[in-house]
């Protein structure tokens, strides 16, 4: 199993073995229930559908509730598909907990970032803007957007003001500081996308710390 669903609970600082303070994000990670197993023979690839987050039957669609009822599990609110690893033997109804991340040094965390509204290019793309003094009129303006008669249009993808944030962001290579299986909690170093309560997808790191 590659990862789990979770929820951001907030940030704090804890002391590590060296007595240094480490900034950590507290993630309520799992337990996730396997709702469906996709196989190479049937769907063309191996994966599992995970569900996470207690809710009430009232808040579920009948179709989603039907799946839960069939497996006689509690109503679960959030779904995601997760690739399986070699040696995983999972069947619908199985529960995967945060113990998955024990011994995993780094994780990637994906979620929807905080919405920042309509933002200019200085804030949105970290452009440097124009001079604030000496008669500068293009203080935080876009500046030049292109050439003259050739090509006579603005290049596609030209960075301009617009909506910032509230999009899916993946934060890679976050160090796992602690796994607390009793509380289903994962502590990762640094910040993760979104506000407190954001639903997150926590996966074993793609790039770092993969042994074997």
């Amino acid at each position: 199993m590659q990862g789990l669903l979770g929820k951001k609970l907030g940030m704090t600082r804890i002391f590590n073995d060296q007595g240094h303070q480490v900034p950590v994000t507290v993630i309520a990670c799992g337990p996730c229930t396997v709702l469906q197993c996709k196989t190479k023979d049937h769907e063309g690839y191996d994966a599992v559908q995970l569900a996470f987050g207690d809710t009430t039957e009232q808040r579920m669609t009948k179709a989603a509730m039907g799946v839960c009822k069939k497996l006689s599990v509690k109503p679960l609110r959030y779904r995601c598909e997760m690739a399986v690893e070699a040696g995983d033997e999972l069947k619908p109804g199985d529960v995967v907990t945060v113990k998955l991340f024990e011994g995993v040094p780094f994780v990637d965390v994906a979620g929807v970032s905080k919405g920042k509204g309509f933002a200019g290019v200085v804030r949105r793309y970290h452009m440097s803007g124009g001079p604030m003094t000496h008669g500068g009129h293009s203080k935080r303006r876009v500046g030049s957007v292109g050439c003259r008669e050739l090509p006579g249009r603005i290049h596609k993808g030209k960075r301009m003001p617009g909506h910032l944030g509230a999009e899916r962001v993946t934060q890679q290579n976050l160090q796992v500081v602690k796994v607390r299986p009793e509380e289903h909690v994962l502590l990762v170093r640094g910040s993760v996308p979104g506000h407190t309560g954001t639903v997150l997808i926590v996966k074993k790191s793609l790039k770092r710390g993969q042994t074997k």
Partner: peptide, 14 residues
């Protein structure tokens, strides 16, 4: 799914 864990962490780190 509450932030009681944050309180626990706070107590532990004192």
């Amino acid at each position: 799914m509450s932030s009681t864990i944050l309180k626990t962490l706070d107590t532990e780190n004192r």
